[in-house]
């Protein structure tokens, strides 16, 4: 979305350690990288240390990236390499203790987890397009599977407000999309009918 236009600006903000840009970077990538590392290492404390190390290095290096994709690749590759280093040192330790067993992932499994991590990132980007209230309601309704009534009492809104929030967003968006994507309308109506 906004990447194409603000690409270089965003990347230079990351380079100069701008806190707002960094918070967004962390929002997007920290959870995904943490999960990725945890799958490789099978050790959540070690995974946390590793991901923190990856971000710290990036912060210190003030690297220049030409596009966001490069930044993304950097994060995944660095995380993976750091994890493999941890495994290697663990293995050495275990070999010394003669307790070595191969409990780690295959190359394919690791790749699959990398894909999964990136899907997570992309989903987070979508969720971040919503207004805070819409996002909250979305999360409660569709991820935590709460009913309108439950959401209403949880957020201390009226049931009607909850519905309105959903409906208002949809109707605004429907107008927006009608202008830009008349071709997509059938699909949209299909989705709205759900």
């Amino acid at each position: 979305m906004m990447e194409t236009e603000t690409n270089s600006e965003y990347l230079s903000l990351i380079k100069t350690n701008d806190p707002v840009a960094w918070q967004q970077l962390i929002r997007m990538y920290y959870p995904a990288l943490l999960r990725f590392a945890n799958k490789i290492l099978n050790d959540s404390a070690a995974a946390e240390d590793t991901v923190m190390e990856v971000f710290t290095i990036l912060w210190q290096q003030n690297r220049t990236f030409k596009e966001v994709k490069q930044l993304k690749e950097y994060l995944y590759v660095t995380t993976r390499n750091k994890c493999l280093n941890v495994i290697r040192s663990k293995r050495r330790e275990k070999e010394r203790n003669q307790l070595f067993s191969n409990q780690y992932l295959t190359q394919e499994q690791m790749d699959a987890h990398l894909i999964y991590a990136d899907v997570l990132v992309e989903i987070r980007k979508e969720i971040d397009q919503l207004s805070p209230k819409q996002r909250q309601i979305f999360v409660l309704a569709y991820l935590q599977r709460m009913t309108n009534d439950e959401i209403a009492s949880y957020l201390q809104l009226s049931n009607q407000t909850v519905r309105n929030q959903k409906a208002a967003a949809l109707s605004f968006l429907r107008k927006a999309i009608r202008k830009k994507f008349p071709m997509e309308l059938t699909l949209v109506i299909l989705l709205l009918a759900l």
């Binding site: 979508e126 994507f181 949209v188 759900l194």
Partner: peptide
């Protein structure tokens, strides 16, 4: 547009 498709 993305939200709409996404939401649905």
């Amino acid at each position: 547009a993305v939200f709409l498709l996404f939401f649905g």
